[in-house]
Design a protein around this nucleic acid. Sequence first.
DNA 1: ATTTATAAAAATCTCGAGAAAAGTTATTGA
DNA 2: TCAATAACTTTTCTCGAGATTTTTATAAAT
Lengths: 244, 244
Amino acid sequence: MPSTPKKSAPLAAEPKTLVESAYRGLRRDIIEGHLAPGEKLRVEHLKENYGVGAGTLREALSLLIADALVVSQGQRGFRVAPVSLEDIADITNTRVMLECEALRQSIELGDDAWEGALLSAFHRLSKAEEKLGDPRTREEWEERNRLFHEVLISACPSRWIKHFLAILYHQAERYRRLSLYLQPIPRDVHGEHEALFKATMARDKEKASAIMAEHILTTLRSIQIIPAELLNKKSPEPASQSQG
Amino acid sequence: MPSTPKKSAPLAAEPKTLVESAYRGLRRDIIEGHLAPGEKLRVEHLKENYGVGAGTLREALSLLIADALVVSQGQRGFRVAPVSLEDIADITNTRVMLECEALRQSIELGDDAWEGALLSAFHRLSKAEEKLGDPRTREEWEERNRLFHEVLISACPSRWIKHFLAILYHQAERYRRLSLYLQPIPRDVHGEHEALFKATMARDKEKASAIMAEHILTTLRSIQIIPAELLNKKSPEPASQSQG
DNA sequence: ATTTATAAAAATCTCGAGAAAAGTTATTGA
DNA sequence: TCAATAACTTTTCTCGAGATTTTTATAAAT
């Protein structure tokens, strides 16, 4: 569970310590694909890229195991978590179940402030969707999309469901970015968001969750074709990373 | 997700490294209550109890954040995760949802080998339940109970659901042990297990999941009274731990 | 040519000491 | 008496170096 109630990240908010700085940088590079799935993470090499000591980097990698973005085996070091078609299907199905349940509870319990926040988030997302196509606005849309989904379920009182959803969202985001090269622009995602928004505001639990399920599953279908060369790099080819 | 398909633990199987040894010992001591909820975990003191260096212990603590048994805040060190009535209720409800879904899928997809394993697990659990009351057999019952639940959902193909359930099971176990002093012997748990077993073998998905839900919720009700002195020790009172 | 054994290389794992921060106690001033 | 500051103590955080283990490369033997 999140140690602080501030954000969805599994650690405190701002990178006060070097461990957290390295954790952030590594997470970003894994999700954005700069560190390929299955790639070996050699501590002695990586510590230079993130400007920290060996022990500190090991600690950051241990933290990333919680997000299932890194795996470690016995005495054989760390690797970027591998990807597979079964995995993304599993992630999606589990996310559908949890997010639909969270949405139902949120609709049941949400108050006026929640409605207001939702209205605001939907407005901002709509604005970002108007000017899609420009790759410079993609990051903005990505962030507002995340926020829209977060606000939708924010009235759900279960911290555990939200915690698990945050993990799954990061996982799904990684897969989405891997297949982004193929499908630069989503399908009619605005229509889906609008229907989702309306059903939620109308407090129609079943309809809203049905739309949500279809929405997430559609995303899966647009992802399922991933070029083979992006999968599970086992060889120790050195990749360049960004710096926190 | 588990890095190895062997067990439900988030790390490799046997404690080959000191990090893992410390991780195991700490997890045990937290779940069994030797390290009280909310208690501060001072690295310099703890490293003697587990016979490892400071960096190694920090790494083990980072690993425990994945299980939500330890929390860390900024520059203020580590603490045992606090407990609350809302939390155990949340854990239970989430567990009901996930475990019922997993059971439905398991019933749907389980083959003959699964039925055989289930039969075996139920038999062993029944034997252990006959001679309950003797506190020496409690650990044995605990283990067989865990295994019975694990086998029940083992035919569910979703690794993520099982991963989340493993986390929640550890959480619930901690609460159960905290309240164990009050309720040394469970209620008619054997009858519940038998009904659950029969409905599952009869491939009655809805009936089985309904019994499962009631079963888990009943456990919650028997837990919800926890003596105040066991809650959230904020003061740095030194507690004695077991040694790995 | 394939396999086994040996040796070198690389990487992981581990520890103790030093710098930075947080928490605590004592002192000063109103 | 109480609040604020300052000095002190404790603890966390960080790094570099040494001990094991794994991996790779080389050579010998069937």
